[in-house]
Design a protein around this nucleic acid. Structure first.
Length: 291
DNA sequence: ACGAGCGCCTGTCGGC
DNA sequence: TGCCGACAGGCGCTCG
C-alpha cells in the first residue's frame, strides 16, 4: 500500500487529526496521549525487541510526536522511539475502546481517553520497532526527496555514481527514501524516461526532468492525501491522477499509444513506449546484432 | 556493484 | 459454482 505520500498523510492525521475516516472512527490525534498497555496479536509484527519486552517497555510511555522518514512512521515517545513500516497492506487506525477488533489487527496500543491505536495489516508484512536509538534502522535510508538539500544537481551526481536501471534504483530506499512502485512509474513517465535506462547515462537535462517529476508526483500525492486503490488505503484521491500505473492497454494521456506493462526487477512496470523510448529505440547502434 | 530468484502472507480477480 | 494461478502499493536474503 503505502509510499511516501500515504505514509505522510497517515503521520499527519495521527499528529493533527483530520484524516477522512468511517463514521465510527474518532478523528483525533494521538499526540499527547499515553500508552497504557499493548497487545501483540501477531508476534512477527514486532521486529524489535521481543514481543514480551515490547509490551512491558511501551506501557506508560507518552506519545510526544509523530513524523515520517522515508516510508517509516516515527513515533517520538517519552522514553524512546517507535518505528512502524506499513509495507504492502499495513494501516494505523485510531479507534474507540470497546469496539470490535478488525480481522487483521496485529498490534493494539491501548491509550488513555478510551482510545486505541491499532496496527492493521492483512498480509502481515509490516513491522514495528521500539528503539532507544532509531539510527540503526533509519540510517540506511537515502535522502528525503522533498528536502531542500535534494537538488537537481545532487540527483544528477547520485545517478552518475551508479550503474543501475532507473526503475530499480528509484525503488532502492538507500538511494532515495519514499518512492514505491506507483510513484516510480508515474515519475518516469512524466520525465519521459524508460525504466531500464542506465542511471549513469542521464544527461543534466534528463536528471532535471526526473527531479521535477519525482517532486511533482510526491507533492501532488500528498496534496491529494495519497493513492487509494482497491480495499487497502482509503481517503486518498491521487488514483484519479495516475497516467500509467495499472493502466496497461489504455491510451497514453500524452500521445494516445497503448500503455504497456513490463516486468522490471520482479515488479510490474507501466510505461508508454512512445513517450519513454529505450536507448535501443533511440540509438540503432545499441539495438543488438545487425545481421 | 548489480540483477535475478525466492520467501514472507492474505485477499481478490479472471479464466476455465 | 468452484478451483487455480496470477497478481498486489515492500523488502530482506542468497546466489551468481
Amino acid at each position: 500500500m503505502p509510499e511516501l505520500p500515504e505514509v505522510e498523510t497517515i503521520a499527519r492525521a495521527l499528529r493533527e487529526g483530520g484524516r477522512a475516516a468511517p463514521e465510527n472512527e474518532p478523528d483525533v490525534p494521538v499526540v499527547g496521549r499515553t500508552i497504557e498497555s499493548a497487545e501483540v496479536l501477531w508476534d512477527r509484527t514486532v521486529a524489535e525487541p521481543a514481543p514480551a519486552t515490547f509490551r512491558r517497555r511501551v506501557a506508560g510511555q507518552h506519545i510526544l510526536g509523530v513524523g515520517r522518514r522515508g516510508k517509516y512512521v516515527v513515533f517520538d515517545l517519552s522514553e524512546e522511539h517507535m518505528l512502524v513500516h506499513l509495507r504492502m497492506t499495513g494501516d494505523l487506525l485510531v479507534e474507540r475502546a470497546h469496539t470490535p477488533y478488525g480481522a487483521h489487527h496485529r498490534l493494539v496500543l491501548h491509550l488513555d481517553g478510551d482510545l486505541r491505536l491499532a496496527f492493521n495489516d492483512p498480509r502481515k508484512f509490516g513491522r514495528v520497532w521500539l528503539l532507544d536509538d532509531p539510527a540503526p534502522v533509519l540510517g540506511a535510508l537515502g535522502p528525503e526527496p522533498l528536502s531542500p538539500s535534494f537538488t537537481p544537481d545532487v540527483l544528477h551526481a547520485m545517478l552518475l555514481g551508479r550503474r543501475r536501471q532507473l526503475k530499480p534504483l528509484l525503488l532502492d530506499q538507500a538511494f532515495v527514501a519514499g518512492l514505491g512502485n506507483i510513484y516510480a512509474d508515474e515519475a518516469l513517465f512524466r520525465a519521459q524516461l524508460h525504466p531500464l535506462t542506465p542511471s549513469n547515462t542521464l544527461s543534466e537535462a534528463e536528471a532535471d526532468r526526473l527531479w521535477k517529476a519525482i517532486r511533482f508526483v510526491l507533492q501532488e500525492g500528498i496534496r491529494r492525501n495519497g493513492t487509494s486503490i482497491d480495499w487497502a488505503y482509503r481517503g486518498g484521491d491521487f488514483q484519479n491522477q495516475l497516467q500509467v500505473y495499472d493502466r496497461a492497454g489504455r491510451p497514453c494521456p500524452r500521445c494516445g499509444a497503448p500503455i504497456q506493462r513490463i516486468v522490471v526487477g520482479q515488479r510490474g512496470t507501466h510505461l508508454c513506449v512512445r513517450c519513454q523510448p529505450s536507448q535501443a529505440d533511440s540509438d540503432p547502434r545499441a539495438a543488438g546484432p545487425d545481421v
